[in-house]
């Protein structure tokens, strides 16, 4: 099985998903994981697709050339063997919400601290809300903690940026419950 990551982005309108799905279906590709959302006025799709015997990305790129002419950008990345498998992520799952008046450096200061402590970001969304005069920046970040860190440690760790950037930060454990 050959795996590719396909990224498609363009001005949002009805029909982008169905057109993409049609092209993949006609090529005989399977869609495994995918995530799509609207960011600003752009619709962005990322799909992990597989094909039993398409060993080159060229046919995929060619099939998408048509929708590129419709104003969408398409990028195909060939995955190395095993690149479709998620690495094992042991450790507590921790959700971090950061929000406050918009200013440069919020994402950078927060994520730099996380990366220094080997805290792995597995999901990140940011959004500019509020009014034009008083913009508010919101960042919601899901992380996996290394074994030696607790939610409380992360809370303490982020206290310094909270003061410095004058933002609010909440940290909470969202490790799943087994029922």
């Amino acid at each position: 099985m050959h795996f590719y990551a396909v990224t498609i982005i363009g001005r949002d309108r009805p029909g982008i998903v169905s057109e993409t799905a049609r092209i993949l279906f006609e090529l005989g590709c399977n869609v495994a994981d995918s995530s799509s959302t609207i960011l600003g006025g752009q619709f962005a799709m990322i799909l992990i697709v597989s094909h039993p015997d398409m060993a080159q990305a060229a046919p995929l790129e060619q099939a998408f050339s048509n929708i590129e002419q419709q104003g969408l950008s398409v990028f195909v990345r060939t995955l190395k063997p095993g690149g479709e498998k998620r690495p094992e992520l042991p450790g507590e799952i921790c959700m971090i919400s950061v929000y406050g008046s918009d200013k440069p450096g919020i994402i950078y200061r927060v994520t730099r601290l996380l990366s220094e402590r080997q805290i792995n970001i597995i999901d990140l969304h940011t959004k500019l809300i509020g009014s034009e005069k008083r913009p508010v920046y919101v960042m919601v970040c899901e992380t996996v903690l290394p074994p030696d860190l607790t939610t409380e440690d992360v809370r303490n760790l982020l206290d310094s940026v909270k003061q410095e950037l004058q933002v609010d930060i909440t940290v909470r454990n969202v490790t799943p419950v087994e029922l």
């Binding site: 799952i93 969202v174 490790t175 799943p176 419950v177 087994e178 029922l179």
Partner: peptide
Amino acid sequence: KTMREGCM
């Protein structure tokens, strides 16, 4: 109450 649930 929202929890992240798993099921056997």
